[in-house]
Nucleic acid binder design. Sequence first.
DNA 1: CGCCCGACTCAGATCGTTTTCAGCCCCGGC
DNA 2: GCCGGGGCTGAAAACGATCTGAGTCGGGCG
Lengths: 337, 337
Amino acid sequence: MTKVSFDRQPTSFDVARKAGVSRSAVSRAFTPGASISADTRDKVIEAANALGYRVNELAKGLSSKRSSLVGVIVADMDTPFRAAQINALTQELVANGYHPILFTADGPVETARTLNQLLHYSLSGAVVTSDAPPSEICIECARLGVPLVLINKEDKLPTVDRVVGDNDHGGALAARELIASGCTDLIVVRPRRESYSMETRIRGFSAAARAEGLEATIVEAGPQTYDGGRQSVPALMQRTITPATGLFCPMDFMALGMLDGLRTDHGLTPPRDLCLVGYDDIPQTAWQPYRLTTIRQPTVPMAEAAVSMLIARIDSPTTPQRTSVVPVELIKRDTTR
Amino acid sequence: MTKVSFDRQPTSFDVARKAGVSRSAVSRAFTPGASISADTRDKVIEAANALGYRVNELAKGLSSKRSSLVGVIVADMDTPFRAAQINALTQELVANGYHPILFTADGPVETARTLNQLLHYSLSGAVVTSDAPPSEICIECARLGVPLVLINKEDKLPTVDRVVGDNDHGGALAARELIASGCTDLIVVRPRRESYSMETRIRGFSAAARAEGLEATIVEAGPQTYDGGRQSVPALMQRTITPATGLFCPMDFMALGMLDGLRTDHGLTPPRDLCLVGYDDIPQTAWQPYRLTTIRQPTVPMAEAAVSMLIARIDSPTTPQRTSVVPVELIKRDTTR
DNA sequence: CGCCCGACTCAGATCGTTTTCAGCCCCGGC
DNA sequence: GCCGGGGCTGAAAACGATCTGAGTCGGGCG
């Protein structure tokens, strides 16, 4: 560990001296809406620019007890939908003057651990898209005044806000599209690991099917990945597949794997031999070999909703818990008729 | 803006009082390697646990003039390769006790603006995988003692470390694979926007081709996306494509678009009608419809290299600039013979 | 002319750490 | 018996901002 000295960042004191004002004036010059004359502000800004002054966010956060950092906790970051989600979230946060500090977490326990780490910074808030953290830590966040927004997670606590896609309606859209394609034998693929989104999508699907007098069969499948989808095909083949078969896989990433499995290993090509609807509308669904009919869950509006809820709660922490439901949309491509 | 009061986080003072020691002792108890007796440490830790004490990272950073935050600047975050890269980087940083603060930036200018913002935090360092920032800001970082690591960027400055894939060798591997497949008419696709990686890969390819007595033709193509790849196919069709045509697209994401364009719009299927090699080994290349032969640029080792260089420079800031070259590997699939 | 109010400014306390410095205790060596 | 030094500890000074309370200065109004 060698010792080296670097040029010090100029402080508000340096700027104050150069501009011939007090440190408070410097602070006010950089605080929108503070009580300061245009004259003084200009002097300060000029001096600041000349010196290359940067407000020290750490000191700012320490003294105001709130940093402009926002925790973002994600799972499966390298998955197409998640990647798009983080991208949207990051941009939206930065656009609103916040800075995302990013963590990955695999289960609820690790999410809690991560959230705990995040609380070492005086966060403005946190967005969780991995797993719903245990209520204990959520309450802790509320106690400390750190707003929490969960994306696509179940409603468990009165202290956390939520953004969800309209899973119920999405499932229904899928069911109706399959029925409109002439499918009477409806099958739903349920990924191995349970999750709120999958369950609600499937529920919406089943309900809509029932409304049309059809009972959807549920088939247990593999993990939520491309390979998981592909590996789930054999289980599917236990049933007889006919052109009247309508398959709903509530996650595109898996659906693409299934599609490849169906075609390659069993010579079954939608929409001729069966129909297939996915969920999410990841970019790959539009690629030539797939052209999958799917339900679009728009990442940008969801990110906007999440950030705006976060900001709303920062501004008025006592408002009752809110859930923002983001509309979804059927994207009809070539795997339905 | 309503006012609400929350429970205060306990401070080192609270812990100190409870444990019957001084604040300094508390600080030392949480500083590995500090001069403190096991006895005192245990007392402190116990008191800390009882109170739910968390070290305030902001205060810590302010006082020690160095936070455990590391800036990560990325472009095209929702692209498969980039997503994998951020994922690896995040995990590696966290594993080493650092916390990534994430930004997106589109060009060098925006990267500079972002880096500037990041300097408001007393960063431990920054990793840039978007565009190489202007040297001005790099020098500023060096002046302030903030180590910078560029991934897959050109070597311009003596003050920044770099991690690069072995692009030269990767290009050569691609060329040799095509030649081994019996291709004598070598074509390289050059994406519209120039970038260091693309250029060096192409250079490596051309050099290896020339070593075998073949001259590679360069075709200008579209942007670095799936659609960009697909749209580049017509330009390619200006030339006569034969089974002896060996195509090198130095980016998988584009290559997949090209592959789809070639097959769908022109009925050309590798490896029968031509050969194709990509670069990066994004997950989709292994998917059934593609099975693209490609050069694997391993994200995890690159992330490890980046973080370890960062740490090395934090520990000893004066060591000379280093460049870490990460080996690449040919992944032979079904688009070559 | 006096008073008050609003707009602005400044000094100084504060935020929660780390870090320096001085001091204590105890042990071993001379 | 004295001295030196290593281990450990606590008091207090940074660190670089915000924020509060006190004060100044004009200007409008009675």
